[in-house]
């Protein structure tokens, strides 16, 4: 397992949301401002990496029959730690994400990676898998936020970026973002649940289109190579 291949898998060819189609609830629910998206993505990245490392470290000593129960306990532990730390140090993010932070426990990405990857691989490989899968997840969240925010309120980087006194990153979620066109002209519907469903649907469709095309191209190349050989 090399790192470069894992990187490509996590971000593109085996992206958790766009290809494995898991962890969609939060993806659609909280992607209304960039602040939420980045915050959620990083929280999941941290939890996923920690869980991956622990699960693969204890994979040989836990009894097989109750492994899922143990995974759930470990995941719930890390989620609660992140939840408490957010409440203490970034309360704005904790308020904005609300119930979706504890709900990371049942986010299929984490238990899915524990079951499918960390059980069979070394601690090192699991660590990088956590980081790259987490990055892949964050990337999708950020893409959703950017699209929904731009069409919905004509804004970029709501909550995270403030430009009133020069460019500044606000970690308390107060930044107004960069207004690209007046918010009255935005299609407010993109901020509603409708926008979440349709943006994710179109993103997955685009991903399927791209993957199919690249597969087709590869096939043609192989075919051409074969013909040359013959």
């Amino acid at each position: 397992m090399n790192i470069k291949k894992q990187f490509k898998e996590g971000l593109i060819t085996n992206n958790p949301v766009l290809v494995q189609l898991i962890g969609m609830c939060a993806t659609m629910a909280i992607t209304t401002t960039l602040f939420n998206g980045v915050g959620m993505g990083i929280s999941v990245l941290i939890i996923l990496t920690c869980c991956n490392v622990v699960v693969s470290a204890i994979r040989k000593i836990i009894p097989d029959e109750i492994r899922l129960a143990i995974f759930v306990v470990v995941i719930a532990g890390f989620v609660t730690i992140v939840d408490l730390l957010l409440q203490a140090y970034i309360p704005a993010l904790s308020d904005a994400l609300g119930v979706f932070i504890p709900l990371i426990v049942v986010n299929c990405i984490i238990i899915g990676r524990a079951e499918a990857f960390c059980q069979k691989n070394t601690v090192g490989a699991s660590f990088f898998d956590g980081i790259f899968q987490g990055l892949g997840y964050t990337l999708v969240l950020v893409a959703m936020c950017v699209i929904r925010e731009f069409i919905g309120s004509g804004r970029f980087g709501g909550g995270l970026i403030d430009i009133t006194n020069g460019l500044r990153f606000t970690l308390d979620g107060t930044g107004a973002g960069i207004q690209l066109f007046p918010s009255e002209y935005g299609a407010g519907i993109m901020n509603l649940p409708f926008g979440g469903f349709i943006t994710l649907g179109l993103l997955i469709a685009a991903m399927q289109y791209a993957l199919k095309r690249s597969a087709k191209k590869r096939e043609e190349k192989e075919k051409a190579a074969k013909e040359v050989e013959e």
Binding site: I62, I66, V73, A76, I81, Q87
Partner: peptide, 23 residues
């Protein structure tokens, strides 16, 4: 099996207690 699960739960709860104490 229950003993193993119980021990793991206890460890996790202990760690959480520590984090809670700090935060």
């Amino acid at each position: 099996l229950s003993a193993v699960l119980l021990i793991i739960c206890a460890i996790v709860a202990g760690i959480l207690g520590g984090v809670n104490y700090i935060t």
